[in-house]
Design a protein around this nucleic acid. Structure first.
Lengths: 86, 86
DNA sequence: CCCGCTATGTATAACGA
DNA sequence: TTCGTTATACATAGCGG
């Protein structure tokens, strides 16, 4: 991408992987914010690092996004009635 | 961004907003895929357009990501025990 | 680990068809 | 409206603190 092009595959070097994760995660969150702002969209983004840490972004609130996702026509029927009352 | 810089605020022109939404959404999904691949992260991304359409991406499956999010220590206790059995 | 720098690779706004 | 092109803005890999 920058000083040198990289392959889109798991980064072997742990340090480099962590640094890349940190930087791209930040950029990705920014993009999510821009997309929701520019186009009046509701966005929910969840990221779990390889070490199990959770990072999330939601234009409204994650619970609201998840609930909306579960209530979406395409998903009703693909799951039980759980979360409907959240 | 390109032929001209834009402000990060809701795009008034409907046509331009739809085009931008379509393009940025695609790019955003690609970024999500790259981040999960490069850094071995689990990612869930949900996007609801202003018209209510749902677009989603998950490195594994959205239900799995949502479940993991709900089971995350930081979220247990912030909600009821719903979704635990999905 | 986080921050800044900067050369370069990418994403994309505005057009044209 | 949808698609391809292209000039630019933006994101970021590799380093140094």
């Amino acid at each position: 991408m920058t000083r040198r092009k990289i392959q889109i595959k798991n980064i072997d070097n742990t340090t480099a992987r962590l640094v890349t994760f940190s930087k791209r995660r930040k950029g990705h969150f920014k993009k999510a914010f821009e997309l929701s702002t520019l186009c009046d969209a509701e966005i929910g983004l969840m990221v779990f690092s390889a070490t199990g840490k959770l990072f999330e972004y939601a234009s409204s609130s994650m619970q609201q996004v998840i609930e909306r996702h579960n209530l979406h026509p395409d998903n009703l029927g693909k799951m039980d009635q759980l979360s409907l009352e959240l």
